[in-house]
Each structure stands twice: as structure tokens, then as C-alpha cells.
Design a protein around this nucleic acid. Structure first.
Length: 325
DNA sequence: CCCGGATCCTGCTGGC
DNA sequence: TGCCAGCAGGATCCGG
């Protein structure tokens, strides 16, 4: 389940293994892998072929490979260069099971869940495979637009630009341009539960179900706490905890990519060793020994320590709805 | 505008 | 042994 640390590990691996290479051929093995690309598979391949990959950027759980400018780059007779058109990028979201794998072109295995393959030039050439069992991930070639704040669009970005489909995704906790005070205020303006807020990518990005539960446990807060009744220090505490747990995961997950192989497998060692509550139903809380509880939440699971994370006493306020007459 | 629930998808697991 | 329900869950869509 790739969340921010796993996606960052992939970004770093791609940056080292495919940046600077040119796309020579595109194979779509399953059309739905590019379902969010407006022009469909044929247009996707057309826009990508012949382009070079100039950099790899991440914001939250999204990552994108910057594409070399097209047209516009040819010098005029007077030596000046016309402005290039809108820059674009190969955008990727890994969903919950997506992987981006780099192999030598002459010995790339045909993975069972291979959805798309890019042949990249170089000596030796490589293939960049998009593999995705549960098919929630997707690829697309998309235009970039300027960020409203003028700061770089994400980790690894040379410019204040983000893909149009990412414009509504908030900055993440590892982004130096994140306005933390504004985020704390925004969380407290919400009228929802804390865990829902942490998972809302338009509020703060990069946090998924696993790191949300770990952050809440570290902060000693229950995910059902109403956001508008949290004290600012409590919001700061849970955001700091989320940042810490993701940085820890990044340190562990980011060490295994020396080979020509880029992988996202959420279970990158960090999972077995360091999860305090996620998936630990019935096991003792590392802090107080109370058995961890599992509860249903948003069609999935939440794991909490009932002692370290007391459930809020009063039920969340229910909005008054006018009775139908 | 904001909130929250349903939905998409596939493969594995567990219960009967 | 075989079948099927349940579960995993990020993002989006839609109803209220």
C-alpha cells in the first residue's frame, strides 16, 4: 500500500535509473491503466514516444516524470527561441498495489500483472514496467500548470509547476513549502473526524490508512476526535507524529535500491518491525500493553490502543437536517 | 461549499 | 475439497 514514503522511494529510484533516457516505444497491456488519460491508449503512446524523461517529482502519493519540451524549441533564424508550449509530464499514481519496475531491456520478465511497458533508450536500454495487481493505479500524459504560491511543485521539482490533475492535491508534510500554521488552522476549521482529515489529500497529502493510524497512536489521539474541537497543540502533535513515522519509513525503505530495480512494496521491512498498531489487533500496545483494538472505519479498518487513545466521550455532533414534510 | 458514503478492482483467505 | 463472502484501500463521484 504505497503511501508517501514508498512513493518517495520509487521517485528516488526512478530519478537515478531512468532520468535522461528517451522513450522509444510504449506498450499498453491493459487499456484501463491509462483510463485517466483523456486521449486513450493511442494518444498516450503518441505523446510519450520520442520524449526524454527530464526529472522525477513527487507530491503526496502522486509522482510524475517531466518530459522534454516539444516543438517551440527550434531556434528562429535570428537565433532566439520561441516559447515552448505548456510543459507536460508522465503522471503516475500507484493506487494500492502499483509498482514501477526497471529492468535491463534484454532480460525483463513478463510480470503477470504487467499493465504498461516503456522501452527506454540508453546503453544498455532499459524497460520501465508498470505492474498493478488491483488496478487502482494509473498513468497519463498531462499538462503542467503553475502553483498558486510560486513554490516548487513537489519533491524533485525544478519549477513551480504541477500536473493539472494534481493541482487540488495539498502539499505534504515533507514539503518545505508547506504552510504548517495554515494547515493547523485548516484542520480545525473542518467539521469532521480527525482520521478523515488526515486521509483527505486535499488538506494534507501523502497519508494513507496505515500512517494515519500510526500517527494517531503516536500522538495519543483517537481518530474519531472532532477536528473543530481539537486544540492547536493536538493538531501539531499528530502532524509531527505523521511526519516522524513517514521519515522513519523512508529511512528503512530507501536503502534497498542500489540495483537496477525500482520497487514499491509497502512491506519493505518497515512494516514487520515498526508498526505499533496497524494490523496488530489483539497484540499489546508497545506503550502500555493494552491489547490493540480493530474497528470498522470507512469500509476499512482502524487500529487503536483503547488506553493511549481514548475515544471521545460525546458522539460527533450530527448536523441538524430539516425533517421532510 | 462541505461532508460522508458508495464504488471501482483483483486476489487471497477463511469459514462452512 | 470447493465455493463464496469478506477483506484490502486510494481517489473519485454523487447525494444531501
Amino acid at each position: 500500500m504505497p503511501e508517501l514514503p514508498e512513493v518517495e522511494t520509487v521517485r528516488d529510484g526512478l530519478d537515478r535509473h531512468v532520468r535522461g533516457r528517451t522513450v522509444e516505444q510504449v506498450e499498453i497491456r491493459r487499456d484501463s491503466a491509462v483510463r485517466r488519460h483523456p486521449g486513450g491508449p493511442v494518444d498516450f503512446a503518441a505523446r510519450l514516444t520520442g520524449r526524454s524523461l527530464d526529472g522525477v517529482v513527487r507530491r503526496g502519493k502522486y509522482l510524475w516524470l517531466l518530459l522534454s519540451p516539444t516543438g517551440g524549441g527550434t531556434a528562429r533564424p535570428d537565433g532566439t527561441r520561441p516559447p515552448t508550449g505548456p510543459d507536460d509530464a508522465l503522471l503516475a499514481h500507484l493506487g494500492m498495489s502499483g509498482q514501477l519496475l526497471v529492468h535491463h531491456a534484454d532480460r525483463a520478465p513478463e510480470h503477470r500483472h504487467l499493465r504498461a511497458r516503456l522501452l527506454l533508450g540508453g546503453d544498455p536500454g532499459v524497460v520501465l514496467d508498470f505492474v498493478d495487481q488491483r488496478t487502482f493505479g494509473h498513468l497519463g500524459v498531462v499538462d503542467l500548470e503553475r502553483t498558486p504560491d510560486g513554490a516548487p511543485g513537489g519533491h524533485g521539482s525544478p519549477s513551480p509547476a504541477v500536473p493539472v490533475p494534481v493541482a487540488h492535491i495539498a502539499r505534504d508534510l515533507l514539503d518545505p513549502a508547506l504552510d504548517r500554521a495554515a494547515l493547523v488552522a485548516a484542520v480545525r476549521r473542518r467539521r469532521t473526524e480527525l482520521k478523515r482529515a488526515l486521509l483527505d489529500q486535499s488538506l494534507v497529502s501523502g497519508i494513507g490508512n496505515i500512517y494515519a493510524d500510526e500517527a494517531l497512536w503516536r500522538a495519543g489521539l483517537h481518530g474519531s476526535r472532532p477536528t473543530d474541537r481539537l486544540r492547536p497543540v493536538e493538531v501539531v502533535r499528530v502532524l509531527d507524529a505523521a511526519e516522524e513515522v513517514m521519515r522513519s519509513a523512508l529511512r528503512v525503505g530507501g536503502t534497498s535500491f542500489d540495483a537496477l530495480y525500482v520497487d514499491v512494496n509497502g512491506e519493505s521491512g518497515y512494516f514487520d518491525r515498526s508498526l505499533a498498531v496497524y494490523g496488530q489487533e489483539g497484540r499489546p500496545c508497545p506503550r502500555c500493553g493494552t491489547p490493540v483494538e480493530r474497528t470498522a472505519f470507512m469500509n476499512r479498518s482502524s487500529f487503536t490502543c483503547p488506553r493511549c487513545q481514548p475515544r471521545p466521550r460525546t458522539a460527533r455532533r450530527v448536523r441538524y437536517t430539516r425533517p421532510v414534510l
